[in-house]
Design a protein around this nucleic acid. Structure first.
Lengths: 266, 266
DNA sequence: TACACGCGTCTCTTGTAAGAGACAATCGCT
DNA sequence: AGCGATTGTCTCTTACAAGAGACGCGTGTA
């Protein structure tokens, strides 16, 4: 687990104020950080570890955790002193889904798309300025092209990222991308201008394909889902082996765009 | 919507301390109440209304809502000044599900059970002392026997409630049931002793059937899911028309118990 | 046996967040 | 236009939650 020190995981705030110094921190913020931390680590965490990970005082952490557990937002994990998300969060999450047409229908479309094509398919959205996999349905390939739901990835690494930013002006785009985001996992650096060009192209063509960006073995096809004319609310995408033939890629793209368009009507 | 004043919805605390007076309230608690309130109403709520509904001061409510929206736990609903659950809650909820074998597998079992039988099927759990429908899959009957996920119902009203309390001693049971809980929707009152008897029987037989409790038209069949020998972690249940024949009921019960048992292995 | 470490609980202090309330801007109704 | 209700923002006060730190307990290891 390479994110041992995910504590500094949220400076993605944009680039603003904060830092009154080091003094008291509001309880609510501590809680929000705890939730983020758990989400980032995707596993139950000991209370001590949690305190350390967020450098929050131990006493405070104990208090807050107890309150959250009582409220059902967190649960003590089986073995003993570890905590993880609780049932209530699941219930709230389901309520969110029920109240959100796009998400509900999007999940279905993604599921059938991946069933029909056999490829891994995903629904992606912008979540507080970051690209987020909101739902994914694995294909039936022997090697699993994994990508956990809820995973957040820098926008420039993905095809969807290029579509999600379509329609924003240069200023806004720059604001959403840090220098780090432009560095790919393998160390290559994307030029900001290239990225912005890509966005423009994606906007015009109405889809986007990237090859070997996040990893060397996959190609990513993405199509936009509109919530209003011109406003990209989400993307659907397919993750396929990088050596997929031109023809098949074309076919897949057609199906994908069709489904994405159907979602858009909303 | 009959719950216009759900504000007093959380005195279910048990029966304890609280009431320092009327003074200051912790921000975190306000937030927890807000989430509960939204969950109870299942729709986007205006900020003013929210404040009123929780009788929280308006200024505080505005502040907290803003923070939660920034954090992504809440979202401003389409039209303008209403708020509802946010994407982050969905993501956390999905993370919970992924980390929870019982829930994940239980959902599947419920889905296939209702597909195979054509009846409405549910997975239920104890959630902070209340019976909660954690997942439900509608049958294919013309009249929909609805029951929203996340709905909380007094334990004595349901078959599952009797199973979920199996193994607890009288004292604990009494602690989990208020006087109100013993009054059925149609006004009839259940005797506490009868309820406790039922629990005992359910414990021995390993299933429970109730007729016409929550409403006059349905029968409810439930079977326990064990997380450890003797510990009932959840129940699976079927909701069928009250005039379902003895024979069919028997068949359904068999299938149900089989599936519940399969889940139990864990 | 002693020492270092992590856990869970408690107590006391003080910096600050919760809340009261005033304000201007809108909205809807007559 | 005139009135009441609601909405979003701001300021100021003080009650109280966040935090420091001490304590006792169990555990591992030198």
């Amino acid at each position: 687990m390479q994110d041992g020190e995910t504590l500094n995981a949220w400076p993605t705030e944009g680039a603003d104020e904060e830092r009154p110094a080091n003094s008291r921190e509001k309880g609510l913020n501590r809680v929000l950080n705890m939730l983020e931390f758990l989400h980032a680590n995707q596993r139950a965490i000991g209370i001590g570890e949690l305190a350390k990970g967020l450098n929050a005082p131990r006493s405070t952490t104990y208090t807050l955790v107890r309150e959250l557990v009582e409220a059902g937002l967190l649960e003590m994990a089986g073995d003993g002193n570890r905590v993880y998300f609780g049932k209530k969060l699941y219930l709230y999450g389901m309520a969110y889904m029920r109240g959100n047409d796009l998400l509900r229908r999007g999940r279905q479309e993604v599921d059938t798309l991946s069933r029909e094509t056999g490829e891994t398919s995903e629904l992606c959205m912008l979540q507080s300025g970051r690209y987020t996999i909101v739902h994914s349905s694995p294909g039936n390939r022997p090697f699993r092209i994994s990508s956990a739901t809820g995973l957040q990835i820098p926008l420039p690494w993905t095809a969807s990222g290029r579509l999600l930013l379509a329609g924003l002006d240069r200023g806004r785009i720059e604001a959403m991308v840090t220098q780090d985001d432009l560095v790919l996992p393998d160390g290559r650096k994307i030029a900001l201008d290239d990225f912005i060009d890509d966005i423009g192209k994606a906007r015009v063509t109405g889809y986007c394909v990237t090859s070997g960006l996040v990893d060397a073995y996959t190609k990513c096809l993405a199509a936009p889902v509109f919530s209003a004319p011109g406003k990209v609310e989400a993307t659907m995408c397919l993750v396929v082996p990088i050596d997929t033939s031109e023809d098949r890629t074309g076919e897949l793209l057609t199906v994908l765009r069709e489904r994405a368009a159907r979602l858009s009507i909303s």
